[in-house]
């Protein structure tokens, strides 16, 4: 089976595992970041069989989805019954996904992966708190650095634990670029930023231009770094090739504003 087919299969298995009939009548189907799923799969494939790599990749992805679900939590007071129910299910479905990662890894007897994910989730929440409740003013560069750390909290941990520490800077930059493009897209489509909106809107001017510059700069840097990595044979070639191909698509989409 070709890699693309393997990834497609893992994606569909995960979609079906995440399905909760009642939750999905109230909340939208959770978004699966196919790139993250693919990277997890490729990282685990270094040490595991296809089946085991797929199981681990799905479990870590479920943990990510749990955190993402809680990220959509609103903080303002709600009085509308439907919105209250949505908020309640946002909390509980996030908890359900968080429980599911442990459940599936325990069934695979992958206790070391359970530990890595638990530690990564702690880092993620500490980083999120530092981002939203910083005691000092964060400048643009610090915001970008914070976002990079948040976006890669889990993938960085998994890569390090699997001995692929050299892949970490590439993964960090790739997922940062993805997030920045997503923010740019949200801004273009909705007239607002989604995730770090409060930080950016309150403290930074010309956000749109800054995002453009940042994306272009990061794409150029990552492109060079991937070229360099590709020259070193044996250095996680599948991960590098995957990132390379996806970066080209992302960058083209960004330039043409087709995202």
């Amino acid at each position: 089976m070709a890699l693309n087919e393997e990834l497609e299969l893992v994606y569909h298995q995960l979609r079906s595992e995440l399905n909760h009939t009642y939750v999905q009548t109230i909340l939208p189907e959770p978004t699966i970041d196919r790139d993250k799923l693919a990277i997890y799969y490729l990282l685990f494939r270094h040490q595991e069989t296809k089946e085991s790599a797929a199981a681990c990749a799905k479990s870590v992805m479920v943990a990510e989805i749990g955190l993402d679900t809680h990220e959509s939590m609103t903080i303002e007071k709600q009085v509308d019954k439907d919105l209250i129910k949505k908020r309640q299910l946002t909390v509980l479905s996030g908890d359900f996904y968080s429980a599911l990662y442990y459940y599936s890894l325990a069934r695979q007897s992958k206790l070391e992966v359970v530990k890595w994910v638990a530690q990564a989730i702690q880092s993620f929440n500490v980083r999120k708190c530092s981002f939203f409740y910083s005691t000092s003013h964060l400048g643009w560069a610090e915001i970008i650095e914070s976002v990079k750390k948040i976006e890669s909290a889990l993938v960085e941990k998994i890569a390090c634990q699997l001995g692929l520490i050299h892949a970490v800077p590439l993964l960090n930059d790739f997922f940062l670029i993805k997030r920045l493009i997503f923010e740019k897209k949200s801004q273009a489509e909705l007239g607002q930023l989604s995730y770090f909106s409060q930080k950016l809107v309150d403290g930074v001017e010309n956000v749109s231009d800054k995002l453009d510059q940042e994306i272009k700069h990061k794409v150029a840097c990552l492109s060079m770094a991937l070229d360099q990595s590709a020259k070193h044979s044996g250095m996680f070639p599948q991960v590098v090739n995957y990132l390379h191909a996806r970066l080209i698509t992302l960058a083209e989409g960004f330039e043409e504003r087709t995202y």
């Binding site: 955190l67 908890d95 638990a118 702690q122 929440n125 939203f132």
Partner: peptide
């Protein structure tokens, strides 16, 4: 609510 989410997730991860 956000801090409650982060705290709950953090404590749960500590338990695991």
């Amino acid at each position: 609510n956000r801090v409650a989410m982060y705290s709950g997730d953090f404590i749960f991860a500590k338990a695991i």
